[in-house]
């Protein structure tokens, strides 16, 4: 009677998936990438990271999914944008995302900001996934050289 949670990352196409242990952003299209190996050059964007929250095992209902950056300050010139309501897949890009256009929340948003079945009020009553979440980091030329601060992302969901 307990749901099992896992991340599912989507790579070059909608069937090329991985099970990531982190959501690191960088200059290559890969799960669990090493930022030091694939840094984001000043003045450019990271690859978009497309992923979902997947739920399996036995539960009655999953809903109210919320996602935010809970720790890790930006350095000058750094930003992370996102969306949590994308229903159709498109190949990740290093151009400025046309999907991840909102700055990711830095505190618990209080209400659902990740959709299920195309609706923030959506829910799962059997094994399944949220809609796509997409993250993209950008670093302007105003940023200093070197690594940015580590970030912590938090996802919260209700299970009844």
């Amino acid at each position: 009677m307990v749901a099992t949670f896992g991340w599912v990352e989507y790579l070059a196409n909608a069937t090329a998936t991985a099970t990531p242990t982190n959501l690191n952003l960088g200059s290559t299209l890969a799960a669990n990438l090493a930022p030091s190996t694939y840094p984001i050059t000043a003045g450019t964007y990271s690859y978009e990271k497309w992923f979902k929250a997947a739920f399996s095992a036995s539960f009655t209902r999953i809903d109210n999914i919320q996602f935010w950056k809970s720790a890790g300050a930006y350095v000058t010139g750094e930003n992370i944008t996102w969306t949590g309501q994308q229903t159709a897949f498109a190949a990740p890009t290093t151009a400025a995302s046309g999907y991840a256009t909102s700055t990711v929340a830095t505190a618990d948003p209080g209400t659902a900001n990740v959709s299920i079945g195309g609706a923030l009020a959506g829910s799962l009553t059997a094994a399944g996934s949220s809609d796509f979440m997409i993250l993209q980091a950008s670093v302007t030329t105003a940023a200093s050289a070197g690594a940015v601060n580590q970030k912590t992302f938090t996802l919260q969901y209700d299970e009844v």
Binding site: N22, A71, Q150, T152, T154, L155, Q156, D158, E159, V160
Partner: peptide, 16 residues
């Protein structure tokens, strides 16, 4: 009223 709220965290090193 019965609700189980799950909070999942991840950073650069992996799940927290």
């Amino acid at each position: 009223v019965y609700l189980k709220r799950n909070i999942v965290r991840v950073d650069e090193t992996g799940p927290l």
